[in-house]
C-alpha cells in the first residue's frame, strides 16, 4: 500500500471512530470531541488522496487549511453553548432547591 493511500485509510478509520463516538457517547463534551475526530479523519483523507499520482494537489490542501480553521471556530461555539447549557442547568437546580426548602 502506498503512503498516500495509507494516510487516506487511516483517515477513514479515524472518521469511523468519530462517527461511532458521536452516536455512542452521551456526555456532550465528549460528543464534541468525537465530532472533531470525524473532521480530523476527513482532513486526513483529503490530504492523503491529494498526493495520489506523485505530485500533491494544492486544491485539497487549501480546502483542509480552510476546514481546520472553521472546525476550530465551530468547536469554540459548541463549547460556549455547552457551557451555557451547563450554567442554565445549574441555576435551575438551585431554583428547585430553593423551592423545595
Amino acid at each position: 500500500m502506498s503512503s498516500e493511500l495509507l494516510f487516506a485509510v487511516v483517515g477513514a478509520l479515524i472518521f469511523t471512530l468519530g462517527v461511532a463516538g458521536t452516536v455512542l457517547v452521551a456526555n456532550l463534551l465528549r460528543r464534541i470531541l468525537a465530532f472533531n475526530l470525524m473532521g480530523s479523519g476527513a482532513f486526513l483523507v483529503l490530504v492523503g488522496l491529494a498526493q495520489r499520482g506523485g505530485e500533491s494537489d494544492p486544491v485539497p490542501h487549501a480546502m483542509v487549511l480552510t476546514g481546520i480553521v472553521v472546525a476550530v471556530a465551530a468547536t469554540a461555539l459548541a463549547l460556549a453553548l455547552l457551557r451555557k447549557q451547563h450554567e442554565m442547568k445549574d441555576s435551575e437546580e438551585e431554583l428547585t432547591e430553593i423551592d423545595d426548602g
Partner: peptide
Amino acid sequence: VIAAALVFGGLLINAIV
C-alpha cells in the same frame, strides 16, 4: 453501533482503495 461502524468503516476504506 460498533458493528454498524465496522461495516461503515470497511465500506469507506473499500471505496478509498
